[in-house]
Structure formats: structure tokens, C-alpha cells
Design a protein around this nucleic acid. Sequence first.
RNA 1: GUGGCUGUGGUGAAGCGGUUAACACGUACGACUGUGACUCGUAUAUUCGAGGGUUCGAUACCCUCCAGCCACCCCA
Length: 417
Amino acid sequence: MALTAVKGFNDILPDESGRWQYIEQTARRVFELNGFGEIRVPVMEKTELFCRSIGDATDIVEKEMYTFTDKGGNSVTLRPEGTAGVMRAFIEHKLYAQDPISKLYYLGPMFRYERPQKGRYRQFHQIGAEITGVHDPLADAQVLNMLTTFFREIGLTEPTLQINSLGCPECRPAYRATLRSFLEERMEHLCEDCKRRFDTNPLRMLDCKVPGCIEATAGAPSVLEHLCSGCDEHFSSVRRYLDLSATPYSINSRMVRGLDYYTRTTFEMVTGLLGSQSAVAAGGRYDGLISQLGGPAIPGIGFALGLERVALLLGSQDFASLPDLFIATMGGGERDFAFSLMDGLLKAGVRVEMDYEGKSLKSQMRRADKLKARYSVVIGGDEVASGRASFKRMIDGLQTDVALTVGDIQSLIGKSE
RNA sequence: GUGGCUGUGGUGAAGCGGUUAACACGUACGACUGUGACUCGUAUAUUCGAGGGUUCGAUACCCUCCAGCCACCCCA
């Protein structure tokens, strides 16, 4: 049996990588327009970083991390998400000392030991963006606008924005207690998972899909009605800014996060097209994270979007670039001439292909067709002697006689520099 | 981590105990020895995810493993 890739780790083949590049380029363009700069951080960090940021009791840290001991005896982990590493770098290099506000984006592989499914793999890829140093809800709105713009630019209308507020250390404990006492009375109607969540993460119970639980929690108190005045005002301002920028959204007061560091604004871009992997992008505010990691008390907000899921939503559109010209040759004698011509055109930025193996003219023309070259030309003894050749426009077969110079060929195929 | 379904060539698939393992797409070459697409012809799975077992005989039945999908879970 031949060797295969590790379960949940996938190859991205050329017919698919065009789509990935399109997603990445669109993200870079939109993010950089908004003033974000790329940060590249390692794929592996000390395990402690993730325990302290994501939260010891979360599923990610408890059972999904690729953690191992390296040869020096240190516990290290393949990053399960991007924010923690970016914030570690932010603190380590004291980026806040150069500029009180920073806007960073990153992209790359993340690793989680989960059961693979469509849109969910053990190595998956995220593009994320983070703003630090801004308390003002304007930052929340900009991030949400940017995310919305990204999806619009890429040509998708499907994922829709849902927002919520999780409160802050001031008001969340009180809400938690209120929710707990509400749920306690209905314990017998709840599923086993929810009974367990009651102790670990009662907010998560609002997100349960078991019909009995949905019914039992129908009248549960909403976070939004238990926000302190600061959080309430913040949330209203976020909504006002979203309205001002005509950013469509809906409020989902039952939306929960799987990472402990979130405060106040949280959001998701959700779709109904990906089965149970409905979140295409998600994020929120994390005002306590940086100080929790040993940095100064600087607020932050950000999101990450799942590349695989966006790629899935884009479908099988073809983003590959096509050759401008295919050069066919009659025999060995003309290949030196053709090779020089190809070389000159490539250096001028024209995408050229030619036959590599001295195949029959028919085979060469078939290949020109298969590669979807826009033009083809046959170089034989006559062409070498006269310095002119007949260029065929493949789409309609129209032939044009042109001198075999880089400039003339460029002007024919409409690809000048 | 739990449950269910599935696994035949590069792809989509028929066959479901004894077949030359159908058909289509794709690919290669040719018909057309200087021009692709359409058409036609020829070739293209010693083998049915892997390993065991039952059987005179297994791609088909059984077991184990592996992989994929779906739901749960979780999440991007």
C-alpha cells in the first residue's frame, strides 16, 4: 500500500489552488485597504500559551490540540487558532510601544485533532485580522464592515452576519448566575450534554440543538438584557455604526464562543450551505486577553475565516490562468528558433507554451486546444526563413500573418507591457 | 470521542458467488505525413480500499483495519 497523507491533512492540487489564491489575494487586498499589515508567526507555540488564552476548560485545549514534548523536554503545540500566537508576538515585540493602535492580519494552517468532515479538517487554514488598542466600538464596526466587504468582493452573498454581546467581567458573572438559576429549574428536560455543560459552560446550553433543550430554554434570560451600562452602550454604538455603513446583520443573543477570551462583541458569518459546519468566519472582542498573557491592559478585537469553507462556498469555479500562445514546431530543426522565441516572449511577460517532446503536429495542436491557449502558431522551415508566421486565434480559427518578433506578437495578442 | 452509511480505473459509474469487470468521460495514438475543437478507429482495471477468513471458486459473503461522507460533538 502506497503512502498516503495523514488523516485530516489534505493536498491542495493545482486545479484547486487557483481558487485558494483568489481568496487569499482578495483578503489581502481588502485588509490592506483597511490599513492592516501582515504578521507571520510560527505554527508552533509553547503549550502554555494556548492554555492561558483559549482556556483550560475548552474543548480545543482539553481534547483537540496536537501537543507533544520536543527533544528538549518542552511541551509544544501546533497552533489550533491564530489569535494567541499573534498576541504573544505583539507582547513579545512590544508593538504597542511603537504605535498604540495596531492592525494585523495573518494567514496559514491551524491544527485541531477533530473527526474530519466536509469543511472540517485536522489541518485547516484561516485568514484572520486583529485590531489592538481601540476601545471604541468604531473598531468593532470596521472589522465587521471589512469582513462583510471581503465576502461581497469575493462574490458571495450567502454567509450572513450575526452579532451578539457577551458582556464583560463586570456583568457576565451576574448573567451567568441568573441563567443558571433559570436552567436549574428545568434540568430534567435537558439532554445529558447540557447537564454536563451546566457546570462547565452554561452559556453553551443556549446553543444546544436537541429539540427538548430548545424548548426548555425558550424563555431563558437574554445576555443582552443583562449587560452593564458600559457594555450596553458599546453594543448600541456598534449597531449604530453598522447601520450608518449599511452593513446588514442580525442579532443572535444565543450565539456563544468556544474560546474563553471573548468579551463584549462577538459575531459569526453563517451559512446554511455547509451542513453542520455553518460558521465560515467568526470572532469578537477580547479586551482582557493581552493582559492575561502578561502584556499591558490593551483591548483587542478580531476574527478568523476558514479558507476551506470559503473555498467550498465558491464552488468549482475555475481561476486558473490560460496560456496566451502555444508554439508548435514541424521538426527538430525549428525547435532552437522556437525556443528562442518562447524565451523572448516569456521575458516580455507573455504566457507561452510549446511542445516538449517532438510530437506530431496534430498532437501539438490538440495540446494547444487542451491548454486553452488563446493563440497558436506553427513554426516550420518556411517561417524560420521568412521571419513571419500565421497566428491562429483558437476561439474562431482566424489566422493572421505576423512577423516573428516579440513586439509584433505582443500587439497581436493584445498583451503589451 | 459516539453513532450511521459508503469504498470497483485518472473521473462518473454497471456488475453483487464462476463475466473477456459493461458503458460514458478522460488520456495516448491514428484517420488528416503543415494546423485543435466535431466525427470515426485503436489502445487504455491480470483487478475491484488493505489484510485475513468462509468456499471447489469471492469484486460480491464474514471479520479486522484504513479512508471518505453524514449526523452528534465541536468550530473557522
